[in-house]
């Protein structure tokens, strides 16, 4: 049994294979979005450069640090459950959720600010991309937090152990995907010009 698991672990990614199919599909959609942004910018370089300056780069940095930190906390939660330390696993997951919540709060403030300035999807092509890309990602953060919360509850109830923690690894992989997407989105939309 142990031998089978070690072979499986070295040939397949951590977590359930189904979540990886889902992750790859999500990544493909974001890749198309990023390429569309970059090539659309080609036709409107000045407009993209001008309106990029209206974005709150400091808020984006806070969000970047929040997501990276939450991803790190999730890594620690997986390490904890592999040591059969359920309590610490739950604590790390709650810390990761707190960072996720910080992301949502900061991003919501950004959206409120834009809304109060009259910015919407039809303002111009830059804002159309900015709002749709970041909101699509925002929805993924919410979904990731729901998954992490469910895992935290199940971990607290003793559902996971050193022998069986596929659920924790699956949720962790999804959350890292959310982080991964933001790591490209942040420089592309907020910095590169």
């Amino acid at each position: 049994m142990t031998v089978d698991r070690s072979v499986k672990q070295s040939n397949y990614p951590p977590g359930d294979l189904a979540i990886w199919i889902f992750i790859l599909a999500e990544l493909a959609v974001f890749a198309i979005f990023f390429a569309a942004y970059a090539f659309t910018r080609l036709q409107h370089v000045e407009l993209f450069n001008e309106y990029q300056l209206t974005l709150d780069r400091e808020a984006a940095l806070i969000n970047t640090l929040a997501l990276i930190t939450s991803s790190y906390f999730v890594v620690r939660s997986v390490s904890a459950i592999k040591l059969d330390d359920r309590e610490r696993c739950v604590h790390w997951l709650l810390a990761a959720l707190t960072m996720g919540l910080l992301f949502l709060i900061v991003k919501t403030f950004e959206y409120v600010q834009h809304y109060s300035e009259g910015v919407n999807l039809s303002s111009n092509i830059f804002y159309m991309f900015y709002l749709s890309l970041t909101f699509f990602h925002f929805m993924h953060v919410i979904m990731g937090m729901v998954i992490l919360a469910a895992i935290a509850v199940m971990a607290a109830r003793g559902r996971y152990s050193r022998q069986e923690h596929t659920g924790v690894e699956s949720g962790a992989s999804y959350w890292h995907m959310v982080d991964l997407v933001w790591l490209i989105l942040f420089p592309l939309v907020y910095v590169m010009r």
Binding site: P13, P14, Y72, E169, L180, L183, F186, P187, M192
Partner: peptide, 18 residues
């Protein structure tokens, strides 16, 4: 900046995602 983002992505993939 793009190169740094790609390095960061690879670090997340290799070490955080396992």
């Amino acid at each position: 900046v793009l190169f740094l983002a790609l390095i960061k992505g690879q670090l997340v993939g290799s070490y955080f995602m396992g």
